[in-house]
Amino acid sequence: MSDGEYDYLIKFLALGDSGVGKTSFLYQYTDGKFNSKFITTVGIDFREKRVVYKSTSPDGSSARGQKIHMQLWDTAGQERFRSLTTAFFRDAMGFILLFDLTNEQSFLNIRNWMSQLQIHAYCENPDVVLCGNKCDLADQRAVSEDEARELAEKYGIPYFETSAANGQNVSHAVDVLLDLIMKRMERCVDKSWIPDRTVRANGPMDPDTSEGADRGKCAC
């Protein structure tokens, strides 16, 4: 799979409480399958997938489809692996934050997960998508869509109601996250071409002159 025949290597990381469906989510995304048996992830794992990304914004370099090799890190939700999994946060470009719609506590813990991210990720506000998983279990729902959306808005992140079991919104959520990353990347990189700025060819870019709007977003 990792044959080098791709344009970008993108690393995502799925996190959330134990049992919310991270492994299943990723398995659904990569293989299109669902296994209802619960096998807790030991520490950490990852899956890979090759996708083609087409940028939505008209841009010379990304009009064609970009081959993306995705490395999807799957972390254990269990407390005992916490120190281990947190170490991997720094490696991911984007995060899929999951909770279980039938488990209110997992939703309440989203706050904690977000703060963990803010501490350990590669920057202070990485790209995250919030997913309320197990939406197929409608009769066991314990978290309303409204309150979930509200929380997502508070963080300024997209929210999806997903189901690893039937695949609903799984690809969509990941695609959106990918899009966010690619856009961020373009922004990061494109900044160097703004004429006001020190042109790259003349030396390293001066970080103090970064645009105000993007200051918080991307440190390039």
Binding site: Y122, C188, C218
Partner: peptide, 13 residues
Amino acid sequence: YMTGEWFYEAKSL
């Protein structure tokens, strides 16, 4: 882009 350098730069800060 393609080397992921953008990411590492951000991370290094």
